[in-house]
Structure formats: C-alpha cells, structure tokens
C-alpha cells in the first residue's frame, strides 16, 4: 500500500511537469498546426533568467514576471525571424525549423549559463509532506494547483473570448479565418508568445524540484510531447491527462517491472495508442476525418 501510494504520488509529480510542457505544445499546435520542439527550451530560458534575476537581488515575484516577459519576447522573436519567412512552406519544414531553434537556444543557454545546475528556492518553503506512507514534495502540490488554474484560464481564453476564438479559427481553416478578417500571421505570433510564456511558467515551477541547466528542456519536452500525442493533439485537458498518464506509466513500470525498461514501456504505449486511437485516447470522434 505504501509503495503503491509512493508510485502514484511520484507519477503525478513527474506527470504534472510533463503536463506543463504539453499545454505549450497544444497551444502552438492548435493555432498554427506546428509542433514546436523548442517548447522545452522556453522552459529552460524561463527558469534560468528567473534565477539570474533572483541572484541579482530582485524580489522573487518581480523576477518571475520579468522572466516570463523575457521568454515571451524570445518566443515572439523566434516566430518573427524563423517561422514567419517560411510560413508558406509545408508544415514538416516548419517543424524542422523549430528543432533548429531548439538547438540554437540550447547552445545559447550553454554559452550564457554554463553547465553547472542552478537552484531556485521555492515560493513556499516547506518540509516534505508524509501522507499515507508516501513522501510528497510540497512544490509538486503547488505545480498541481497552477496546472489547474492554467487549465481554467486557457479554457476561458480559448472558448469564451473573441481573440481565443480567432486563434482557434486560424488552425481549423486559415483561409476562412482570413476571409473573416483574422490575420493568421498575427495569430501565429501570438501563439508563439503565449507558448513561450507558458513554457517559462513551467520552467520556473519545476526548477525547485529538478534544478535548471541548459539541457533541462529536451527530456521534459519529449515526454510532454508524448503526453500530448497520447491524450489528443487538439485538446488541452486531453494533453494534460495524457501527460499525467505518461508520468504514472513511468513510475509504475519502473516500480513493478524495472527502471531499465520504463522508457521503453512508455514508448510502447505510445505506439499502441497511435495504432488503435491515432487521435489520442481522450479525443472525441469528430466528423473531420475523411
């Protein structure tokens, strides 16, 4: 029982980290149709700039806001310089561009911050919590709360506001959106800015648990992406559920089978999902597929 509890807690902790990344993936994908593989690097930039500000003596909250703003600006610059000019080429080229951007940002991170892991004190400093024999890191509860808030805010933004609907319209049918007076190019810029800001929030939140290095973005980015594919590419709640599932899969396979195979098992599940439910297990059937 204790073991089971510990695996669930750890799985949800790890899964919520992936979920934060998955949200950013879905946001860009929903609006532009691009898989943004630089999402993990936005998390890295957010985390490391925040640490830089804190070390420079700025108060915590100000550092967090500045770090999010700077990351969002970098997201905007990336879109305006790397994505905009290739806007009319095929999606696969755009995806490859984001891989290039990811490598570039990682390289810059290495040059600016070096290889040593950097620490960030959590907003709420507490001892680990013991609950039914399992140990819970207080920061992971905090991550969970923020995750729920983000879900609610993004739901309202995309479903209830004019600009949110405009953003969604761009992905559903760019041509029709254009005819309705929506500029897909502006919306794409907005999508990347938003995704970079979400990435930065993710990076800042997870750093108290994992520490920040220039290479932190890759693994969590890939896992977040897997979560998104398993949960459904189009829905933010689906992607979050998928990411949590990936976290649980990892810990349960690591705990009950072997940590040597936990990654292999996660990817096996991914392949099975792609075989049997290519739209993701949480996707509702829609009339769009031909």
């Amino acid at each position: 029982m204790e073991l089971l509890m510990q695996y669930i807690v750890t799985g949800l902790t790890v899964g919520s980290i992936y979920a934060l990344l998955a949200i950013g993936f879905v946001t860009v994908y929903n609006i532009t149709g691009i898989l943004n593989f630089a999402q993990g690097e936005f998390a890295m930039i957010g985390a490391l700039t925040c640490i830089t500000f804190v070390n420079a003596g700025l108060p915590m909250y100000a550092s967090i806001i500045f770090a999010i703003l700077i990351s969002a600006t970098i997201g905007l610059i990336v879109e305006r310089t790397a994505i905009l000019h290739a806007r009319n080429t095929s999606v696969i080229i755009l995806i490859i561009i984001t891989i290039g951007v990811s490598t570039f940002l990682k390289g810059m991170g290495l040059i600016i911050w070096g290889t040593n892991p950097k620490q960030l004190t959590p907003l709420i400093k507490m001892e680990p919590i013991h609950f039914m024999g399992a140990v819970i890191n207080p920061q992971s509860i905090f991550i969970f709360i923020v995750l729920l808030i983000l879900l609610a805010v993004l739901y309202v933004f995309f479903e209830k506001t004019y600009i949110g609907s405009a953003l969604r319209a761009c992905e559903k049918n760019p041509r029709a959106a254009k005819l309705m007076g929506i500029n897909p190019s502006t919306m794409s810029a907005l999508a990347f800015t938003l995704a970079a800001a979400l990435g930065a929030i993710a990076g800042i939140l997870i750093t108290p648990i994992t520490d920040a290095t220039y290479e932190m973005g890759f693994l969590i980015g890939v896992k977040g992406f897997v979560g998104m594919v398993i949960g459904g590419m189009h829905s933010i709640p689906g992607a979050v559920a998928g990411a949590l599932l990936v976290g649980l899969l990892e810990t349960f396979s690591g705990g009950f089978i072997s940590t040597f195979y936990s990654d292999a098992i996660t990817f096996l599940v991914l392949i099975l999902v792609l075989f049997f439910k290519p739209n993701g297990i949480f996707a509702r059937a829609s009339g769009e597929r031909v």
């Binding site: 750890t10 902790t13 997870i206 040597f260």
Partner: peptide, 20 residues
C-alpha cells in the same frame, strides 16, 4: 541495481525499489 536518465526530474521510484 537501478538506473535513471541523467537529466530526469525524479528518482524516487528507483530509491523506493532500493529501500526494499
């Protein structure tokens, strides 16, 4: 004997296995 990824976010499962 347990393994983890050098950039992984959490090694609690491995350590729980070790504790057993």
């Amino acid at each position: 004997h347990e393994e983890f990824d050098a950039t992984a976010t959490d090694m609690t499962v491995q350590l729980t296995n070790i504790r057993k």
